[in-house]
Design a protein around this nucleic acid. Structure first.
Lengths: 221, 221
DNA sequence: CGCGACTTTGAATAGCCTCAAGACATGTGG
DNA sequence: CCACATGTCTTGAGGCTATTCAAAGTCGCG
Protein backbone atom coordinates (compact mmCIF):
# COMPACT_ATOMS: atom_id res chain seq x y z
CA UNK A 1 0.00 0.00 0.00
CA UNK A 2 1.42 3.36 -0.94
CA UNK A 3 2.17 5.90 1.71
CA UNK A 4 -0.45 8.63 1.99
CA UNK A 5 -2.96 6.12 0.72
CA UNK A 6 -5.57 6.90 3.36
CA UNK A 7 -4.69 10.39 4.31
CA UNK A 8 -4.77 11.76 0.80
CA UNK A 9 -8.19 10.33 0.22
CA UNK A 10 -9.95 12.12 3.01
CA UNK A 11 -11.57 15.51 2.55
CA UNK A 12 -10.98 16.46 6.17
CA UNK A 13 -7.23 16.68 5.48
CA UNK A 14 -7.77 18.66 2.30
CA UNK A 15 -6.09 21.86 3.32
CA UNK A 16 -2.85 20.36 4.54
CA UNK A 17 0.54 20.45 2.83
CA UNK A 18 2.36 17.30 1.73
CA UNK A 19 4.78 17.28 4.63
CA UNK A 20 1.89 17.62 7.05
CA UNK A 21 0.21 14.67 5.41
CA UNK A 22 3.42 12.74 5.99
CA UNK A 23 3.17 13.47 9.69
CA UNK A 24 -0.36 12.21 9.81
CA UNK A 25 0.38 9.15 7.75
CA UNK A 26 3.03 8.17 10.29
CA UNK A 27 0.48 7.89 13.11
CA UNK A 28 -2.06 5.97 11.06
CA UNK A 29 -2.52 2.23 11.34
CA UNK A 30 -3.48 0.05 8.41
CA UNK A 31 -5.89 -2.86 8.49
CA UNK A 32 -7.28 -5.30 5.98
CA UNK A 33 -10.69 -6.93 6.21
CA UNK A 34 -11.87 -9.74 3.93
CA UNK A 35 -15.37 -9.61 2.45
CA UNK A 36 -17.99 -10.48 5.01
CA UNK A 37 -15.84 -9.77 8.03
CA UNK A 38 -16.88 -7.58 10.91
CA UNK A 39 -14.91 -4.37 11.36
CA UNK A 40 -16.60 -3.23 14.54
CA UNK A 41 -19.61 -4.11 16.66
CA UNK A 42 -22.07 -2.29 18.88
CA UNK A 43 -20.70 -1.97 22.42
CA UNK A 44 -17.12 -1.81 21.15
CA UNK A 45 -15.17 1.06 22.59
CA UNK A 46 -15.26 3.97 20.20
CA UNK A 47 -11.80 5.45 20.39
CA UNK A 48 -10.49 5.61 16.85
CA UNK A 49 -11.34 7.47 13.69
CA UNK A 50 -11.69 5.11 10.77
CA UNK A 51 -10.90 5.92 7.14
CA UNK A 52 -11.92 3.66 4.28
CA UNK A 53 -8.97 3.43 1.91
CA UNK A 54 -10.64 1.02 -0.48
CA UNK A 55 -13.59 -1.31 -0.51
CA UNK A 56 -17.06 -0.90 0.91
CA UNK A 57 -18.38 -0.99 4.45
CA UNK A 58 -21.98 -1.30 5.52
CA UNK A 59 -22.82 0.37 8.82
CA UNK A 60 -26.01 -0.84 10.45
CA UNK A 61 -27.90 -0.99 13.72
CA UNK A 62 -30.02 -3.72 15.20
CA UNK A 63 -33.47 -2.89 16.54
CA UNK A 64 -34.86 -4.49 19.71
CA UNK A 65 -36.76 -7.02 17.60
CA UNK A 66 -33.56 -8.08 15.84
CA UNK A 67 -34.29 -6.37 12.58
CA UNK A 68 -31.44 -4.62 10.86
CA UNK A 69 -31.29 -1.03 9.66
CA UNK A 70 -28.56 -0.03 7.25
CA UNK A 71 -27.47 3.52 8.10
CA UNK A 72 -24.54 4.23 5.85
CA UNK A 73 -22.64 2.66 3.03
CA UNK A 74 -19.04 3.82 3.39
CA UNK A 75 -16.92 4.04 0.25
CA UNK A 76 -13.34 5.00 -0.44
CA UNK A 77 -12.49 8.21 1.42
CA UNK A 78 -15.43 8.05 3.83
CA UNK A 79 -14.78 8.21 7.52
CA UNK A 80 -16.58 6.86 10.56
CA UNK A 81 -16.20 7.18 14.26
CA UNK A 82 -16.15 10.96 14.34
CA UNK A 83 -19.25 10.79 16.49
CA UNK A 84 -17.27 10.44 19.68
CA UNK A 85 -13.88 11.89 19.01
CA UNK A 86 -14.03 13.88 22.20
CA UNK A 87 -16.14 11.84 24.52
CA UNK A 88 -15.83 8.35 25.74
CA UNK A 89 -18.65 6.47 24.15
CA UNK A 90 -19.53 3.05 22.95
CA UNK A 91 -20.42 2.20 19.41
CA UNK A 92 -24.08 1.74 18.70
CA UNK A 93 -23.73 0.26 15.26
CA UNK A 94 -22.02 -2.58 13.41
CA UNK A 95 -19.56 -2.27 10.54
CA UNK A 96 -19.14 -5.05 8.02
CA UNK A 97 -16.88 -5.24 4.99
CA UNK A 98 -18.98 -6.08 1.92
CA UNK A 99 -15.92 -6.60 -0.26
CA UNK A 100 -12.24 -6.87 0.62
CA UNK A 101 -11.57 -3.59 2.36
CA UNK A 102 -8.57 -1.54 3.45
CA UNK A 103 -9.05 0.64 6.49
CA UNK A 104 -6.79 3.13 8.23
CA UNK A 105 -7.36 4.23 11.78
CA UNK A 106 -6.20 7.10 13.96
CA UNK A 107 -6.40 6.91 17.73
CA UNK A 108 -8.62 9.45 19.42
CA UNK A 109 -5.77 11.04 21.29
CA UNK A 110 -3.66 11.42 18.18
CA UNK A 111 -6.54 12.95 16.32
CA UNK A 112 -7.19 15.44 19.07
CA UNK A 113 -3.57 16.53 18.84
CA UNK A 114 -3.91 16.92 15.10
CA UNK A 115 -6.91 19.14 15.53
CA UNK A 116 -5.07 21.35 17.96
CA UNK A 117 -2.18 21.58 15.54
CA UNK A 118 -4.23 22.13 12.38
CA UNK A 119 -7.47 23.96 13.17
CA UNK A 120 -8.71 23.57 9.61
CA UNK A 121 -9.28 19.91 10.38
CA UNK A 122 -11.96 20.62 12.97
CA UNK A 123 -13.78 22.88 10.57
CA UNK A 124 -13.68 20.17 7.94
CA UNK A 125 -14.96 17.62 10.43
CA UNK A 126 -17.80 19.94 11.33
CA UNK A 127 -18.74 20.13 7.67
CA UNK A 128 -18.71 16.37 7.32
CA UNK A 129 -20.95 16.12 10.36
CA UNK A 130 -23.30 18.68 8.96
CA UNK A 131 -23.73 16.86 5.68
CA UNK A 132 -24.26 13.55 7.41
CA UNK A 133 -26.90 15.09 9.65
CA UNK A 134 -28.76 16.60 6.71
CA UNK A 135 -28.62 13.30 4.88
CA UNK A 136 -29.95 11.37 7.86
CA UNK A 137 -32.72 13.87 8.40
CA UNK A 138 -33.86 13.40 4.83
CA UNK A 139 -33.60 9.64 5.16
CA UNK A 140 -35.68 9.66 8.33
CA UNK A 141 -38.33 11.85 6.76
CA UNK A 142 -38.59 9.64 3.72
CA UNK A 143 -38.62 6.43 5.68
CA UNK A 144 -41.58 7.49 7.77
CA UNK A 145 -43.65 9.52 5.34
CA UNK A 146 -43.24 7.98 1.91
CA UNK A 147 -44.24 4.64 0.46
CA UNK A 148 -41.80 1.87 -0.35
CA UNK A 149 -42.41 2.64 -4.01
CA UNK A 150 -41.46 6.30 -3.62
CA UNK A 151 -38.42 5.49 -1.50
CA UNK A 152 -37.11 3.01 -4.04
CA UNK A 153 -37.75 5.40 -6.93
CA UNK A 154 -35.85 8.09 -5.07
CA UNK A 155 -32.98 5.78 -4.34
CA UNK A 156 -32.64 4.84 -8.00
CA UNK A 157 -32.65 8.47 -9.07
CA UNK A 158 -30.09 9.46 -6.49
CA UNK A 159 -27.81 6.56 -7.25
CA UNK A 160 -27.91 7.36 -10.95
CA UNK A 161 -27.18 11.00 -10.17
CA UNK A 162 -24.25 10.10 -7.93
CA UNK A 163 -22.76 7.84 -10.60
CA UNK A 164 -23.64 10.31 -13.37
CA UNK A 165 -25.11 7.60 -15.58
CA UNK A 166 -28.52 6.21 -16.43
CA UNK A 167 -27.33 2.64 -16.39
CA UNK A 168 -25.65 1.27 -13.30
CA UNK A 169 -25.20 -1.80 -11.17
CA UNK A 170 -26.94 -1.83 -7.80
CA UNK A 171 -24.12 -1.49 -5.27
CA UNK A 172 -25.92 -3.64 -2.72
CA UNK A 173 -27.60 -6.99 -2.46
CA UNK A 174 -31.36 -6.69 -2.41
CA UNK A 175 -31.28 -7.84 1.17
CA UNK A 176 -29.07 -4.92 2.19
CA UNK A 177 -30.89 -2.49 -0.03
CA UNK A 178 -34.05 -3.57 1.73
CA UNK A 179 -32.70 -2.78 5.18
CA UNK A 180 -31.45 0.54 3.86
CA UNK A 181 -34.87 1.51 2.54
CA UNK A 182 -36.68 0.03 5.51
CA UNK A 183 -38.47 -2.72 3.63
CA UNK A 184 -37.98 -6.34 2.51
CA UNK A 185 -36.18 -7.95 -0.45
CA UNK A 186 -39.51 -9.25 -1.73
CA UNK A 187 -41.03 -5.80 -1.86
CA UNK A 188 -38.03 -4.47 -3.76
CA UNK A 189 -38.33 -7.24 -6.33
CA UNK A 190 -41.99 -6.48 -6.82
CA UNK A 191 -41.56 -2.73 -7.10
CA UNK A 192 -38.71 -3.05 -9.59
CA UNK A 193 -40.87 -5.38 -11.64
CA UNK A 194 -43.64 -2.81 -11.47
CA UNK A 195 -41.34 0.01 -12.64
CA UNK A 196 -40.16 -2.15 -15.51
CA UNK A 197 -43.73 -2.96 -16.48
CA UNK A 198 -44.42 0.79 -16.56
CA UNK A 199 -41.33 1.16 -18.79
CA UNK A 200 -39.73 3.52 -16.26
CA UNK A 201 -36.68 1.30 -15.97
CA UNK A 202 -35.12 -1.74 -17.64
CA UNK A 203 -33.53 -4.52 -15.60
CA UNK A 204 -30.61 -6.51 -16.97
CA UNK A 205 -28.77 -9.50 -15.54
CA UNK A 206 -26.18 -8.72 -12.89
CA UNK A 207 -28.25 -6.23 -10.90
CA UNK A 208 -27.95 -3.74 -13.75
CA UNK A 209 -30.63 -1.07 -13.81
CA UNK A 210 -31.26 1.32 -16.65
CA UNK A 211 -33.42 4.34 -15.96
CA UNK A 212 -35.66 5.24 -18.86
CA UNK A 213 -37.84 7.96 -17.43
CA UNK A 214 -36.35 9.71 -14.43
CA UNK A 215 -38.98 12.44 -14.39
CA UNK A 216 -41.86 10.04 -14.19
CA UNK A 217 -40.01 7.96 -11.61
CA UNK A 218 -39.72 10.99 -9.35
CA UNK A 219 -43.46 11.48 -9.45
CA UNK A 220 -44.01 8.06 -7.88
CA UNK A 221 -45.99 8.36 -4.68
CA UNK B 1 -34.55 39.65 29.59
CA UNK B 2 -31.39 39.37 31.69
CA UNK B 3 -28.03 39.62 30.02
CA UNK B 4 -26.32 36.27 29.49
CA UNK B 5 -29.75 34.74 29.26
CA UNK B 6 -28.97 32.75 26.12
CA UNK B 7 -25.30 32.35 26.34
CA UNK B 8 -25.27 30.89 29.82
CA UNK B 9 -27.82 28.31 28.85
CA UNK B 10 -25.85 26.69 26.11
CA UNK B 11 -23.49 23.81 26.75
CA UNK B 12 -21.24 24.79 23.86
CA UNK B 13 -20.13 27.86 25.84
CA UNK B 14 -19.62 25.86 29.02
CA UNK B 15 -15.91 26.29 29.39
CA UNK B 16 -15.80 30.06 29.06
CA UNK B 17 -15.25 32.63 31.78
CA UNK B 18 -17.83 35.24 32.69
CA UNK B 19 -16.14 38.07 30.86
CA UNK B 20 -15.90 35.93 27.75
CA UNK B 21 -19.60 35.23 27.99
CA UNK B 22 -20.10 39.00 28.12
CA UNK B 23 -18.28 39.35 24.83
CA UNK B 24 -20.46 36.74 23.22
CA UNK B 25 -23.65 38.15 24.65
CA UNK B 26 -22.82 41.47 23.03
CA UNK B 27 -22.91 39.98 19.54
CA UNK B 28 -26.10 38.03 20.08
CA UNK B 29 -29.49 39.18 18.81
CA UNK B 30 -32.70 38.53 20.68
CA UNK B 31 -36.02 37.62 19.12
CA UNK B 32 -39.48 36.80 20.38
CA UNK B 33 -41.91 34.49 18.62
CA UNK B 34 -45.56 34.05 19.66
CA UNK B 35 -47.05 30.57 19.85
CA UNK B 36 -47.77 29.17 16.42
CA UNK B 37 -45.45 31.49 14.56
CA UNK B 38 -42.84 30.36 12.06
CA UNK B 39 -39.22 30.91 13.07
CA UNK B 40 -37.66 29.68 9.86
CA UNK B 41 -38.66 27.86 6.68
CA UNK B 42 -37.05 25.47 4.26
CA UNK B 43 -35.14 27.37 1.56
CA UNK B 44 -34.32 30.18 3.99
CA UNK B 45 -30.66 31.09 4.02
CA UNK B 46 -28.93 29.26 6.80
CA UNK B 47 -26.46 31.78 8.14
CA UNK B 48 -27.12 32.05 11.85
CA UNK B 49 -26.82 29.83 14.87
CA UNK B 50 -30.03 29.80 16.86
CA UNK B 51 -30.29 29.34 20.63
CA UNK B 52 -33.59 28.68 22.36
CA UNK B 53 -33.65 30.84 25.51
CA UNK B 54 -37.13 29.78 26.57
CA UNK B 55 -40.15 28.10 25.05
CA UNK B 56 -40.39 25.20 22.66
CA UNK B 57 -39.69 24.87 18.96
CA UNK B 58 -40.72 22.06 16.68
CA UNK B 59 -38.37 21.41 13.77
CA UNK B 60 -39.89 19.45 10.91
CA UNK B 61 -39.49 18.58 7.25
CA UNK B 62 -42.07 18.16 4.55
CA UNK B 63 -41.97 15.10 2.31
CA UNK B 64 -42.73 15.21 -1.39
CA UNK B 65 -46.29 14.07 -0.71
CA UNK B 66 -46.81 16.92 1.74
CA UNK B 67 -46.63 14.83 4.88
CA UNK B 68 -44.80 16.26 7.83
CA UNK B 69 -41.97 14.68 9.79
CA UNK B 70 -41.06 16.14 13.17
CA UNK B 71 -37.30 15.87 13.56
CA UNK B 72 -36.51 17.65 16.79
CA UNK B 73 -38.28 19.32 19.65
CA UNK B 74 -35.98 22.11 20.80
CA UNK B 75 -36.19 23.16 24.43
CA UNK B 76 -34.42 25.79 26.51
CA UNK B 77 -30.69 25.67 25.85
CA UNK B 78 -30.95 23.71 22.61
CA UNK B 79 -29.35 25.07 19.47
CA UNK B 80 -30.08 24.73 15.79
CA UNK B 81 -28.42 25.76 12.60
CA UNK B 82 -25.03 24.30 13.41
CA UNK B 83 -25.38 22.11 10.35
CA UNK B 84 -24.00 24.73 8.04
CA UNK B 85 -21.88 27.02 10.14
CA UNK B 86 -19.07 26.82 7.65
CA UNK B 87 -20.75 26.34 4.35
CA UNK B 88 -23.35 28.29 2.53
CA UNK B 89 -26.44 26.19 2.61
CA UNK B 90 -30.15 26.52 2.64
CA UNK B 91 -32.39 25.24 5.36
CA UNK B 92 -34.20 22.03 4.65
CA UNK B 93 -36.58 22.13 7.58
CA UNK B 94 -39.18 24.36 9.19
CA UNK B 95 -39.11 25.76 12.71
CA UNK B 96 -42.32 26.66 14.51
CA UNK B 97 -42.79 28.04 18.02
CA UNK B 98 -45.24 25.80 19.89
CA UNK B 99 -45.49 28.22 22.82
CA UNK B 100 -44.27 31.81 23.22
CA UNK B 101 -40.56 31.48 22.61
CA UNK B 102 -37.42 33.55 23.11
CA UNK B 103 -34.61 32.94 20.67
CA UNK B 104 -31.10 34.34 20.41
CA UNK B 105 -29.08 34.20 17.24
CA UNK B 106 -25.44 34.58 16.27
CA UNK B 107 -24.37 35.34 12.72
CA UNK B 108 -22.25 32.74 11.03
CA UNK B 109 -19.31 35.07 10.64
CA UNK B 110 -19.35 36.08 14.28
CA UNK B 111 -19.52 32.47 15.36
CA UNK B 112 -16.57 31.55 13.17
CA UNK B 113 -14.57 34.27 14.87
CA UNK B 114 -15.58 32.95 18.26
CA UNK B 115 -14.41 29.50 17.36
CA UNK B 116 -11.06 30.82 16.26
CA UNK B 117 -10.76 32.72 19.52
CA UNK B 118 -11.98 29.94 21.82
CA UNK B 119 -11.09 26.53 20.42
CA UNK B 120 -13.03 24.76 23.15
CA UNK B 121 -16.21 25.89 21.41
CA UNK B 122 -15.52 23.85 18.31
CA UNK B 123 -14.88 20.77 20.38
CA UNK B 124 -18.17 21.32 22.19
CA UNK B 125 -19.98 21.80 18.90
CA UNK B 126 -18.50 18.55 17.64
CA UNK B 127 -19.86 16.80 20.69
CA UNK B 128 -23.31 18.26 20.18
CA UNK B 129 -23.21 17.10 16.58
CA UNK B 130 -22.16 13.65 17.66
CA UNK B 131 -25.02 13.27 20.07
CA UNK B 132 -27.53 14.51 17.58
CA UNK B 133 -26.24 12.07 14.99
CA UNK B 134 -26.49 9.15 17.41
CA UNK B 135 -29.99 10.18 18.38
CA UNK B 136 -31.11 10.48 14.75
CA UNK B 137 -29.57 7.13 13.91
CA UNK B 138 -31.58 5.49 16.64
CA UNK B 139 -34.70 7.32 15.57
CA UNK B 140 -34.25 6.21 11.97
CA UNK B 141 -33.69 2.64 13.00
CA UNK B 142 -36.78 2.59 15.17
CA UNK B 143 -38.96 4.33 12.62
CA UNK B 144 -38.22 1.76 9.94
CA UNK B 145 -37.90 -1.46 11.90
CA UNK B 146 -40.29 -1.27 14.83
CA UNK B 147 -44.07 -1.17 15.01
CA UNK B 148 -46.06 1.90 15.95
CA UNK B 149 -46.79 0.20 19.26
CA UNK B 150 -43.11 -0.31 20.08
CA UNK B 151 -42.19 3.19 18.99
CA UNK B 152 -44.85 4.73 21.19
CA UNK B 153 -43.88 2.55 24.14
CA UNK B 154 -40.28 3.61 23.73
CA UNK B 155 -41.24 7.24 23.52
CA UNK B 156 -43.19 7.04 26.76
CA UNK B 157 -40.32 5.34 28.56
CA UNK B 158 -37.78 7.85 27.30
CA UNK B 159 -39.93 10.84 28.11
CA UNK B 160 -40.48 9.55 31.63
CA UNK B 161 -36.75 8.96 32.00
CA UNK B 162 -35.92 12.44 30.75
CA UNK B 163 -38.37 14.03 33.18
CA UNK B 164 -37.38 11.66 35.98
CA UNK B 165 -40.97 10.87 36.87
CA UNK B 166 -43.52 8.18 36.15
CA UNK B 167 -46.35 10.66 35.72
CA UNK B 168 -46.03 13.42 33.17
CA UNK B 169 -47.92 15.53 30.69
CA UNK B 170 -47.33 14.79 27.02
CA UNK B 171 -45.29 17.76 25.76
CA UNK B 172 -46.89 17.64 22.33
CA UNK B 173 -50.30 17.54 20.76
CA UNK B 174 -51.16 14.09 19.47
CA UNK B 175 -50.93 15.42 15.96
CA UNK B 176 -47.32 16.50 16.47
CA UNK B 177 -46.46 13.39 18.42
CA UNK B 178 -47.83 11.43 15.49
CA UNK B 179 -45.53 13.11 12.98
CA UNK B 180 -42.63 12.59 15.36
CA UNK B 181 -43.29 8.86 15.60
CA UNK B 182 -44.18 8.55 11.94
CA UNK B 183 -47.81 7.61 12.43
CA UNK B 184 -51.27 9.22 12.81
CA UNK B 185 -53.12 10.74 15.80
CA UNK B 186 -55.73 8.00 15.53
CA UNK B 187 -53.16 5.25 15.89
CA UNK B 188 -51.69 6.94 18.95
CA UNK B 189 -55.09 7.16 20.59
CA UNK B 190 -55.73 3.51 19.93
CA UNK B 191 -52.35 2.33 21.16
CA UNK B 192 -52.58 4.39 24.34
CA UNK B 193 -56.03 2.91 24.95
CA UNK B 194 -54.51 -0.53 24.42
CA UNK B 195 -51.69 0.12 26.89
CA UNK B 196 -54.23 1.34 29.43
CA UNK B 197 -56.37 -1.73 28.90
CA UNK B 198 -53.27 -3.85 29.60
CA UNK B 199 -52.74 -1.79 32.78
CA UNK B 200 -49.32 -0.70 31.54
CA UNK B 201 -50.25 2.98 31.82
CA UNK B 202 -53.04 5.15 33.21
CA UNK B 203 -54.36 8.13 31.27
CA UNK B 204 -55.71 11.18 33.08
CA UNK B 205 -57.36 14.32 31.69
CA UNK B 206 -54.99 16.95 30.33
CA UNK B 207 -52.72 14.61 28.39
CA UNK B 208 -51.34 13.22 31.66
CA UNK B 209 -49.79 9.79 31.40
CA UNK B 210 -48.80 7.61 34.31
CA UNK B 211 -46.53 4.66 33.63
CA UNK B 212 -47.38 1.63 35.72
CA UNK B 213 -45.15 -1.05 34.28
CA UNK B 214 -42.13 0.31 32.44
CA UNK B 215 -40.47 -3.10 32.12
CA UNK B 216 -43.45 -4.65 30.41
CA UNK B 217 -43.87 -1.58 28.22
CA UNK B 218 -40.33 -1.97 26.95
CA UNK B 219 -41.09 -5.51 25.86
CA UNK B 220 -43.77 -4.28 23.47
CA UNK B 221 -43.07 -5.41 19.93
C1' DC C 1 -20.41 -28.15 -12.99
C1' DG C 2 -22.69 -28.19 -8.62
C1' DC C 3 -23.75 -26.15 -4.44
C1' DG C 4 -25.27 -22.34 -1.52
C1' DA C 5 -26.90 -17.88 -1.45
C1' DC C 6 -29.76 -14.73 -3.41
C1' DT C 7 -33.98 -13.60 -5.95
C1' DT C 8 -38.53 -13.99 -7.74
C1' DT C 9 -43.33 -15.14 -7.53
C1' DG C 10 -47.58 -16.39 -5.30
C1' DA C 11 -51.17 -16.45 -1.70
C1' DA C 12 -52.71 -15.13 2.69
C1' DT C 13 -52.53 -12.07 6.54
C1' DA C 14 -51.76 -8.32 9.51
C1' DG C 15 -51.06 -3.85 10.70
C1' DC C 16 -51.89 0.69 9.78
C1' DC C 17 -54.19 4.43 7.46
C1' DT C 18 -58.19 6.84 5.77
C1' DC C 19 -62.52 8.72 6.26
C1' DA C 20 -66.28 10.07 9.03
C1' DA C 21 -68.89 11.20 13.04
C1' DG C 22 -69.39 12.17 17.65
C1' DA C 23 -67.26 13.57 22.32
C1' DC C 24 -64.35 16.42 24.72
C1' DA C 25 -61.60 20.20 25.97
C1' DT C 26 -60.02 24.87 25.54
C1' DG C 27 -60.26 29.49 25.40
C1' DT C 28 -63.10 33.51 23.79
C1' DG C 29 -66.59 37.06 23.75
C1' DG C 30 -70.67 38.46 25.56
C1' DC D 1 -68.94 33.56 34.65
C1' DC D 2 -71.40 31.20 31.38
C1' DA D 3 -72.33 29.80 26.51
C1' DC D 4 -70.55 28.84 22.54
C1' DA D 5 -67.20 28.08 18.90
C1' DT D 6 -63.03 25.98 17.44
C1' DG D 7 -59.74 22.84 17.51
C1' DT D 8 -58.41 18.41 19.32
C1' DC D 9 -59.25 13.72 20.51
C1' DT D 10 -61.60 9.24 20.35
C1' DT D 11 -63.97 5.45 18.26
C1' DG D 12 -65.66 2.73 14.46
C1' DA D 13 -65.72 0.57 9.84
C1' DG D 14 -63.44 -0.39 5.73
C1' DG D 15 -59.64 -0.72 2.55
C1' DC D 16 -54.97 -0.99 1.12
C1' DT D 17 -50.20 -1.52 1.34
C1' DA D 18 -46.58 -4.15 2.66
C1' DT D 19 -45.09 -8.17 5.28
C1' DT D 20 -44.80 -13.03 6.03
C1' DC D 21 -44.23 -17.63 4.72
C1' DA D 22 -43.32 -20.96 1.29
C1' DA D 23 -41.49 -22.78 -2.86
C1' DA D 24 -39.41 -22.54 -7.27
C1' DG D 25 -36.01 -20.37 -10.00
C1' DT D 26 -31.52 -18.07 -10.93
C1' DC D 27 -26.96 -16.42 -10.18
C1' DG D 28 -22.22 -16.75 -9.07
C1' DC D 29 -18.44 -18.77 -6.77
C1' DG D 30 -15.39 -22.49 -5.84
Amino acid sequence: MASHECVQLVPIFNDLATNQLDTIESIVRHHHYPAGSTIFSASDALDTLMIVASGQVKVYQLAANGREQLLYLLQTGDIDGEAALFENQQRTSFGEALVPTEVCSIRREDFQNLMRQYPSISINVLNVFGKRLSQLERQTTRATTESVEARLANYLIETAAALKTDTFKLPLKKKDLATFLGTTPESISRKLALFEQQALITQKPGKIIQINDADQLLLTE
